[in-house]
Design a protein around this nucleic acid. Structure first.
Lengths: 352, 352
DNA sequence: TCCATGACAGAGAGCGCTCTCACACGCTCT
DNA sequence: AGAGCGTGTGAGAGCGCTCTCTGTCATGGA
């Protein structure tokens, strides 16, 4: 019927436009637009007529056209920098993503996932962020000199960072982080309270703030500890196993280990067993993360520090959305949200 | 300098447009556009001049405007339906996503992740897919009566499905699946070859083709097996443990178990130990998936069926991109890609 | 009775980009 | 010398939508 004023579609059929709906309903484009966007200020009879036309034609607004004029995308980018490929296969991140997804979809925003595999990708991602595809960005697993926050700031894109960044590029750079230091204190304090005298730790990569903060927590409790009791590792099982073996070689007398991730703790458990140590009788072990598929399933079940990962993701999304909403307002600074540190708690199972 | 012909930006600064670049370079919009899109057919001197202007202004094309006229988004949706919240925290999916991300970014396409949490989300996602935000979609973890493939087909959006769908809505609906049946045959065949006589299986939820296919593979090897040896479960550790206990109660004489996922196998291992069975001496166990963080770290290390998960993701993306590229061509059908079944292989460790 | 008022509806100007078309120019071929 | 050609470049028409501005009509008060 209204063959003109409709856009060609991939499969050859025509996709209806505002124009087509307007024609069918016998009104102007403006009126259809009003109805589609809430329908206020349109008489009921007309509104119904338009709605029927929309229905009949199966009209769906073209987002590109809309974005072009409104400058809103209703989309948020999630950028994951993981040159080492590790971060992403980690259930940790998946859970955060879930929280983010829930929160964004509640706000009718889309989640655009950008993966940075190698350094060449930074350019691509930077272009994307600058290209106005998204209203804001959530940045993950940044390294010490990550260029992304600065890029985003340059193009004026609101961002929230997952995990405490090393340095704030921007006075009011928002971030959400776990209380890594407090959690580590909880873990090490627990070991000390059990009467353990020689408490070692396996750290994550110390160029990440989460790893550094957990080590700081360990030192808070053991300020005069032997540096031999600290083994730097990388949060993975392989690395954790190696670190455990090293610690045993350096200090065979150790009677407790705080591993800064559950994956490392699970590997430590195995290495301890291979070396004839009983857990927890000879050596007590505490992990960090409380990953569902790991902590409760080690043998014996792992005592660990729990963080509500999904909630962190949710929080990040909420922070960003809130910032977007009072964007530019005169009192933006006054009402603007602040960074959040989520609490941790100790989950005592059988290894300590 | 060129204060007009620039778009206002979130943070108050102006974002340069084609027009601004053209003015600065002293050429027309068309020429700038040509340079930005490859630069063919433009004299070198002019091209340089334009490129300098682009640089100086920090010009980035506005994607919405571009999409509006080209009807390409250079973006692909990945839709994950996971009402049960399980699928997503599964490392399985994360790995696939990685493969997809790599392949898409190589093609300069963006990955837009859509999560379907509850049935209300279907509408939102459907609207999004119909709204022309993306050039195609990758659909995951569909249930028997999932409306998404039909929705996508209706609006003419090319799709590739992850895992074999129950029924093809469309003659040439593409999908990528693991050789679940063959993998199961490998596993059960191995157990039989070891001389095991009473081989049980723990299945996934049988309304998913992957679970059903793995059970079929089991039956291929044991066509006359006792139905008592088959316990339906849900791919999770909790479910796997329950199923294992049930099997032991029904058939205490079982001497082998094929668990249709590594998570279930790891739980089975623990339950077997709790019941005083030695693995593999008393009961041999084979899993499925070869998840990095699980299979190699159980005690003893799990014999399992390996599938290249990341590669599956990569394949899906490639299939979709190829379909998009000869979209509409007269010989689309002739050259069009076909669905793919990726091979599996048995990884023998210590449990069988 | 006439004008001020408010509630709707329509006309039309862009948003920033791509792409077709027409034109200009320098060259070769007859 | 003139026609024909190929290569660059510019002008301009949209893509589908939103939003301001203007116009219309019914209502109520002076």
């Amino acid at each position: 019927m209204t063959d003109e004023s409709a856009q060609p579609q991939r499969n050859g059929t025509l996709r209806p436009t505002l124009e087509a709906v307007a024609e069918l309903a016998g009104v102007s484009r403006a009126t259809v637009s009003r109805v589609v966007n809430g329908g206020t200020g349109v008489r009921a009879t007309l509104r119904d007529r338009v709605q029927r036309a929309v229905e009949e034609l199966g009209y769906v607004p073209n987002q590109a056209a809309r974005t072009l004029v409104t400058r809103r995308n209703d989309a948020v980018a999630v950028v994951v920098a993981e040159p080492e490929s590790r971060v992403f296969s980690d259930p940790f991140f998946a859970q955060q993503l879930r929280g983010i997804g829930k929160e964004l979809s509640a706000a009718d925003s889309q989640l655009v996932l950008l993966l940075v595999e190698d350094s060449g990708d930074y350019q691509r991602v930077g272009r994307y962020l600058a290209g106005g595809h998204v209203d804001g960005a959530l940045l993950f697993s940044l390294h010490q000199d990550d260029p992304l926050p600065a890029m985003a700031h340059r193009v004026g894109l609101p961002t929230v960072i997952g995990g405490r960044p090393w340095a704030a590029t921007d006075r009011d750079q928002l971030y959400v982080d776990t209380d890594n230091r407090g959690g580590a204190r909880l873990a090490v304090g627990h070991l000390a309270a059990l009467g353990r005298r020689c408490i070692a730790t396996i750290t994550g990569p110390l160029d990440q703030t989460s790893a550094a903060d957990r080590l700081d927590g360990y030192r808070d409790i053991l300020p005069d500890g032997d540096p031999q009791l600290i083994a730097e590792s990388d949060f993975t099982q392989e690395g954790g196993g190696r670190a455990m073996a090293e610690l045993l070689a350096r200090r065979p007398d150790l009677d407790a280990v705080f591993a800064a991730s559950d994956l490392m703790a699970s590997a430590a458990l195995r290495v301890l067993r291979e070396h004839g140590r009983r857990v927890p009788q000879d050596v007590a072990v505490v992990g960090f993360d409380d990953l569902e598929s790991v902590a409760a399933w080690t043998d014996p079940p792992l005592t660990t520090v729990r963080q509500d990962i999904e909630d962190m993701g949710r929080l990040m999304a909420r922070l960003l959305l809130r910032r977007l909403s009072h964007d530019g307002g005169a009192d933006a600074a006054r009402h603007s949200p602040a960074s959040v540190i989520t609490p941790t708690r100790l989950v005592v199972r059988a290894t300590a």
